[in-house]
């Protein structure tokens, strides 16, 4: 009996182990593959272009690498690459002013989105369980319309003879129409509106999971509602706040469509500067250098975020 029973399982076990290891590898490889294909490869292509020179050709830069040319030629070409375009960026204050202005607009927008998004997410998380899916659907609903159309709609609302001015004039709040369209304020309104769901969703996910008994405990121990919120809810929702803020802040810094449609000639944002490098100057190398620097500017907060998440995870354990 024993012999019979022992002969087959080890075989099976071996079979299974052979299967298990590659499968596990494959599963862990997927995120790395994703990173390689959708981040690292494009990054190196753009980085390489940023070291090239402008040319009148298709594509409009030199050198273009062709793997069939042999190593000698490739090496020769690689030596022609230079960091001159990055030096150029430091020589003209336009770029730094654009980066700073983008960061400022994105930071203000993120703060406003947080101030609006937090109460919204809080109310959703505290709503009766049956209502929550509907409220969640309402937050996601705007995505069913094209982003572009929604930004265009804001032009109709914000312009001098638009909906907002007409309403305010009607109620006698103002006597002269306000100039909002084509200013930085319009850009901030557009960004807050467009990215608000990205603030609300992580906050909601966080607040909804929160153990309500903790608040009850705090109240039992003599906290007022406000104090309980600041001492319990707010710190516990910090990961949600951080996640939501980064989801708004990072795309807002590089935003192009909103400043282009709602902003004025004075609105300086890096997305627009990049556009004019690419389209008006036909200078793909400098445009790529601007993009690489933008990435570097954004990676710092992402790394900070990762660190924060890790610490939070460890603290939670």
């Amino acid at each position: 009996m024993k012999d019979l029973g022992d002969t087959s399982p080890p075989l099976l076990r071996v079979e299974r182990q052979r299967w298990v290891i590659p499968a596990r590898l494959a599963v862990t490889a997927i995120p790395y593959l994703w990173l390689l294909v959708f981040f690292l490869a494009p990054f190196f292509i753009v980085f390489k272009i940023s070291l090239s020179e402008v040319a009148i050709a298709i594509p409009p830069y030199r050198p273009v690498f062709d793997l069939s040319e042999g190593l000698d030629v490739l090496w020769e070409k690689a030596r022609a690459l230079s960091f001159g375009n990055y030096v150029w960026l430091t020589e003209d204050d336009l770029y730094w002013k654009s980066y700073l202005s983008s960061l400022r607009i994105a930071a203000i927008s993120t703060l406003i989105a947080l101030l609006i998004g937090y109460p919204l997410a809080y109310a959703m998380a505290r709503a009766p369980a049956a209502m929550r899916p509907i409220l969640l659907a309402l937050v996601i609903l705007p995505f069913w319309t094209s982003f572009l159309i929604r930004v265009y709609a804001w032009i109709g609302i914000l312009k001098r003879e638009g909906l907002l001015n007409a309403t305010l004039l009607n109620f006698g709040v103002i006597s002269e129409p306000l100039t909002i369209l084509n200013t930085d304020i319009a850009v901030i309104i557009g960004i807050v509106y467009s990215y608000l769901p990205f603030m609300v969703l992580p906050l909601y996910a966080n607040l909804e999971r929160m153990d309500h008994r903790l608040i009850e405990a705090a109240r039992d121990l003599g906290c007022t509602r406000v104090k309980a919120f600041w001492l319990v809810t707010a710190p516990l929702s910090l990961p949600g706040i951080v996640a939501g803020s980064f989801l708004v802040f990072i795309p807002a810094v590089g935003e192009f469509v909103i400043p282009d449609l709602l902003g004025g000639s004075e609105t300086l944002m890096i997305g627009r500067t990049l556009w004019s490098e690419f389209f008006a100057n036909r200078d793909w190398p400098v445009a790529s250098a601007v993009a690489i620097v933008l990435l570097a500017v954004l990676i710092l907060p992402i790394v900070f975020f990762q660190r924060h998440q890790q610490r939070a995870d460890e603290a939670g354990r």
Binding site: L94, K97, E266, L268, T273, S276
Partner: peptide, 8 residues
Amino acid sequence: WTRVKSGT
């Protein structure tokens, strides 16, 4: 042109 438009 950028300078004229944006003042920067």
